[in-house]
Write a protein that binds this DNA or RNA. Structure first.
Lengths: 240, 240
DNA sequence: CAGTGGTCTAGACCACTAA
DNA sequence: TAGTGGTCTAGACCACTGC
């Protein structure tokens, strides 16, 4: 009856057991695992406990449940990677990144910024220019744009040193949800060349981050230009 | 008693309700939410149902439970992004990507490959060279390396057209787990220039993927060189 | 000690799928 | 119709925290 003689919870052991069978090849992608009630019998636990275990594997991408049909082993999910993205992660965990606030102004939005933030051209926006550098020298320059809201306090330190989503959460006094990042390669332009201590045309990694509210309304846009030889993004699989 | 008069399951409504309170600012990071038994009363559901709802929010990063103390609202988690990574995703969902197998040989590993795969220099490896292109022309060239295992069948089609982790899973007859990706900017080199129809020095996005077994042993390494003007990686927050 | 989260049961009913 | 997953209950006991 009560199989509570192990250190680990029953649902966890069940999940590990099935995961083991999958990784060892005993269960292959496409195979159906035994139905939940069968597993409940075999493992001597209740249905809820079985479900709790299977939920873990579904979340981890090992299984896929189809109502009325069964629960099936899925193909390796390695197509999805996790990309930690913050100033701290940018240069690798070992190196320490320093940030310098170069400029903070409230200009009228130009065409590009207006487009990204879905506002009218000419609307006032907050524009932040920063320089990120490590021990070996400058790594990246970045611009952050957010719509200017009259009366809202501007905390310079926050704006320069916090992660962009946090800056916006702070500024809008809201718990935001969506953030998307585009990554592409280009070359260092004239404006950034001096700051980054390289010549124009040097390979650069460009990162554009768009922050949106839950309803999809953009509330922040940032663009980072990084020296290709000093910045490497690292993404990994695993959900834990 | 039975509040089963809604379209959505009770646990889901509870989760959405609390999430709403968090995003609207009614509940702020650090705040404790009402204890589970209290929520069960308020929403008129059982404890298990409450837990099922809270589990969703914990998984999504909105809440953190601490045994014996309570369940608390966490700070915005936007520091972690999801990066879908497969041949199909590379060019954007709209465009169709085509793949051409350029070469498949079994040379001795050079220094770099031997290092990445943690094998001795000179060991035989499978080397695959591919060209990815879209309607507008070539986008990227990539090399895939995996240790050569005598007697293992080599399925050319698989190797060229499947995602790299799947290729290896197939080849090793195993369900693999770890995959990591490094992203950086460089310039097109002489060897790739002609294939990609650009001149040497053109900005390039370089993607190095390392596939490991569960125990950390590397079993595959790939390196993709993409035209910076034709490839943009897109990552988003949200776990769903 | 009381309050909290974590695990678990032995049922129940529903929705969906396939024969 | 039978088999399956999805939701839900009304309890129970345990482990941990803080007073």
């Amino acid at each position: 009856m009560e199989g509570r003689n192990e250190y680990l919870p029953a649902y966890y052991r069940l999940a590990e057991d099935i995961r083991e069978k999958i990784e060892s090849g005993e269960l292959k992608p496409g195979d159906a695992i035994p139905p939940a009630n069968r597993l409940a019998e075999v493992y001597g636990v209740s249905l809820m406990t079985v479900r709790q275990g299977l939920t873990i594997l579904v979340r981890m991408g090992y299984l896929k449940s189809v109502q009325g049909k069964g629960t099936f082993v899925t193909a390796p999910s390695a197509g999805t990677l996790i990309l930690p993205f913050s100033d701290k992660h940018l240069l690798g965990q070992d190196k320490e990144v320093k940030v310098k606030l170069l400029n903070l102004e409230i200009p009228a939005a130009d065409e590009i910024v207006a487009d990204r933030l879905a506002i009218k051209k000419g609307t006032k926006v907050i524009k932040v220019k920063r320089l990120l550098y490590a021990d070996e020298g400058p790594v990246a320059v970045d611009f952050r744009f957010l719509p200017y809201i009259k009366g809202m306090p501007l905390l310079e330190k926050e704006i320069a040193y916090a992660a962009f989503p946090e800056v916006i959460a702070q500024y809008r006094e809201i718990f935001l949800v969506q953030s998307s990042l585009e990554i592409y390669a280009c070359t260092i332009r004239c404006e950034e060349a001096e700051l980054l201590e390289v010549e124009e045309g040097h390979p650069a990694l460009c990162l554009e981050q768009l922050i949106r509210l839950k309803d999809g309304r953009p509330v922040g846009w940032s663009r980072m230009m990084a020296r290709g030889d000093r910045l490497t993004l690292k993404a990994t699989s695993r959900t834990g």
